[in-house]
């Protein structure tokens, strides 16, 4: 990696001072924030980013709190580790799917080190993007090499002009829980539904995966009370030991004597963002979970899916996961 200055600020204001201006997109990679470093280090080593300054967020006080409000709400600060989420009994009670998603990330070592902020803001894993030599559209090039290339792991939904999948396991679970992101920039704080935090390559900048401006960072995620919801996170990986999702389903259901009152289905590993399957959600409402409703939900969730040459298997795979998740909660 290229040599950089290592900065350990003591206050949030100092961090904000270091960051470029809100519109200064050209300067975005001049300063990089480091949380657990599990993603950033890979990027630095492959020269995908070559910052002049790396700012250690871990030296900031007060960003590692995991709080459970009396009303059932949950506040997860950006520097809470994945291991802390995974091992919190209270979280597992309030929202099993968030705890399960955290526990499904990578390996024990990476979960001990990796943070919620880093997990949500991590960059794509597409193997073209991750090779310095391939100047793909995500790196300012003209082409998505995965589109006509070796795309077994790429998107079947929401793709174009880039076909990355969002790599985060936490993101689908938090979106399904209806979480909001609290963002801090030079001009102050803003709050946004986490679902709107992530951007499709066709909507936002193809170079980015979320709405953060160059002067902003993620402070925390707030999860509304999950009372009455049952939930689960099912992740399919090629290798059990540690692997990103080929497909994943975050499912939350409000059931009333076996009948679905409300449903949230968010897919991971299949689209450039956590993919909300709203048609499938709507179709489930008022139904019991049985073979017919599972089949219908699974089909509706994948409406619009377009397979590239090598990733067609993700369609039946995702449908199977949806069915498994529904059966598990019923």
């Amino acid at each position: 990696m290229r040599a950089f200055d290592w900065i350990q600020p003591k206050t949030l204001d100092q961090v904000l001072e270091l960051l470029p201006g809100p519109r200064d997109t050209k300067q975005r990679d001049r300063v990089k924030l480091l949380a657990g470093g599990q993603d950033l280090l890979g990027e630095l080593k492959e020269y995908l980013v070559q910052p002049e300054q790396v700012v250690d967020l871990k030296s900031l006080p007060g960003l590692a709190a995991l709080e459970f409000a009396a009303d059932g709400g949950i506040t997860i600060s950006a520097l809470v580790t994945l291991a802390a989420l995974e091992s919190s009994a209270e979280l597992r009670t309030r929202s099993p799917m968030i705890a399960e998603a955290a526990g499904s990330v990578a390996s024990v070592q990476i979960r001990n080190q990796g943070t919620v902020g880093g997990n949500l803001c991590q960059r794509p894993r597409c193997w073209y993007y991750r090779r310095e030599q391939a100047l793909c559209i995500k790196k300012g090039g003209a082409e998505c090499f995965a589109y006509g290339g070796l795309n077994k792991y790429n998107a079947i939904l929401g793709g174009g002009p880039s076909y990355i999948v969002h790599p985060s396991d936490l993101a689908p679970a938090l979106v399904a829980a209806g979480a909001s992101a609290v963002i801090r920039g030079k001009k102050g704080e803003r709050r946004i539904e986490l679902e709107r935090f992530f951007t499709l390559p066709s909507e936002g900048s193809v170079l980015r995966e979320n709405v953060l401006a160059p002067d902003e960072l993620l402070l925390r995620v707030e999860v509304p009370p999950q009372t009455g919801w049952r939930s689960t996170y099912l992740k399919f990986r090629e290798r059990s030991s540690y692997d990103f999702a080929l497909s994943a389903v975050a499912l939350a259901l409000k059931l009333d004597g076996g009948t679905v009152r409300e449903a949230r289905i968010v897919l991971g590993g299949v689209a450039p963002i956590p993919w909300r399957a709203d048609k499938a959600e709507a179709a489930l409402v008022g139904k019991k979970i049985d073979d017919a409703s599972c089949k219908q939900a699974a089909e509706l969730a994948l409406v619009g899916a377009e397979a590239l040459q090598y990733n067609g298997y993700k369609i039946p795979l995702t449908q199977a996961l949806i069915t498994k998740a529904l059966r598990k909660l019923s």
Binding site: S107, Y128, A134
Partner: peptide
């Protein structure tokens, strides 16, 4: 990659080895 002539998985993340699980 046959067109780019690029080794895509020259690391222990993408070149998958069995792990203990």
């Amino acid at each position: 990659d046959p067109d780019l002539g690029l080794f895509l998985n020259a690391n222990f993340e993408d070149y998958k080895l069995a792990g203990c699980k």
